[in-house]
Write a protein that binds this DNA or RNA. Sequence first.
DNA 1: TGTCTATAATTGTATATACAAATGCTGGAA
DNA 2: TTCCAGCATTTGTATATACAATTATAGACA
Lengths: 240, 240
Amino acid sequence: MEVVKLPGVQPRFQVIKDSITQAIRKREYLPDDQIPTEFELAEKFQVSRMTANRAVRELVAEGLLVRHQGLGTFVTPLKVESPLLEIRNIADEIHERRNIYSNERYELKQIEADKKLAGLLGVNSGDPLYYSLMVHKENGFPLQLAERYVNATLVPDYIEQDFSRKTPSEYLSELFPLSEIEHIVEAVMPDRQEQDLLDISANTPCLLVNRRTWSMNNLISYARLVHPGNLYRLSSRSKI
Amino acid sequence: MEVVKLPGVQPRFQVIKDSITQAIRKREYLPDDQIPTEFELAEKFQVSRMTANRAVRELVAEGLLVRHQGLGTFVTPLKVESPLLEIRNIADEIHERRNIYSNERYELKQIEADKKLAGLLGVNSGDPLYYSLMVHKENGFPLQLAERYVNATLVPDYIEQDFSRKTPSEYLSELFPLSEIEHIVEAVMPDRQEQDLLDISANTPCLLVNRRTWSMNNLISYARLVHPGNLYRLSSRSKI
DNA sequence: TGTCTATAATTGTATATACAAATGCTGGAA
DNA sequence: TTCCAGCATTTGTATATACAATTATAGACA
């Protein structure tokens, strides 16, 4: 028998959290506004004070609220948003510099999402993904090792593309206008395959850029981009 | 009468949190290791299960632990696992997390710009600069080594500040409203001093963030920020 | 008037208890 | 042997209760 898991009831503290979060988003509570006390919340949602306390305490931990003992709970005052890193597509940059560019496609295949990939791409384990691995070079020197995982359900034609003329990101951005992008940058040591493909030694530190892209709230792709640390720099400069 | 506020006793759930955190940092618990159950923690620390529960629950929220109902609680497997939870901003935003934060000022002095620094800060060789070196820590563990070079002509009072209460960037941004900022990120291996100050081994790759800030077209400061690669991630997510 | 004090309001922590939910295991039934 | 039911373990949530700590304020007092 096929068992469909229904969403199920939310915990009561979660209901309170969502309610407060929504109210803040809808500007019903403005920054610095006082929100109801634990007693009032407990009354309103018909829960114990401890449950209201947990809801509020977690929202404080998440930075939405601040509390002052003896005074009350308030919406966190606005803070300056810090500038975010704008990381451009390496292929675009190489193109613009008009150097001799090549990408070598080593692999392009369909796989099944394991647990980790499923989490990263917001699909279920076992769902189909397309995987591609390629090395971007400039004047013959490897600059980037790019592994991409693409939601095969959303982009069924990905696997038939010819990526020697158009890079994966060019293809994807034409089909799926980019609405959101996430970059997470780490410093890592290259594994054996990465050493070989990038032609570097085992003790060359590398920049690892994890990039996920969304298009209209669909999570389209996850890319794992490895750059030899001594060859490449991520740069951003922005006016505020 | 002058009343001196003593540190006071820590809440019991905090004691448990610290104990677990320390054990993880000292590698007494390794990634994927199971930690004691709530019941065992309650027994060990002589508290109720709810108190142990709160300690563990908060550590889960902070990403150190993962729990599986019916199975137990485990040290979070090495990074990459939870990109959805780990959204950390650049450098000084450590502050905003309400963890125990400290910076240790190791040096603060006036120097003369050499050729390289002169280029970076847009001054002439020999011009006066202020140099500061400090280590930012969270819960006692080094997260960032920060070296700053500040244009002494533009910010003559920099050298007299007490940076134990206010970070250099907080001080600078109050005095000089930020109009432009540049980040250049590299992967590097730590030198000897960096290993010592960050308490890492020679083969821990690091993220080096070079940051320059401008205020009304004046180049105010250049900072060289080193983060252990396995501890820190630069993350950005932006809607387009 | 100015100052101190008691009090109310609110959050902070701690506990005992109860039951629900998820997981792995074991032992018995088919 | 295979499968399934039930059990033990562990986490997840909810509550009532208690007392501590912090802050503002109203009222007493000099």
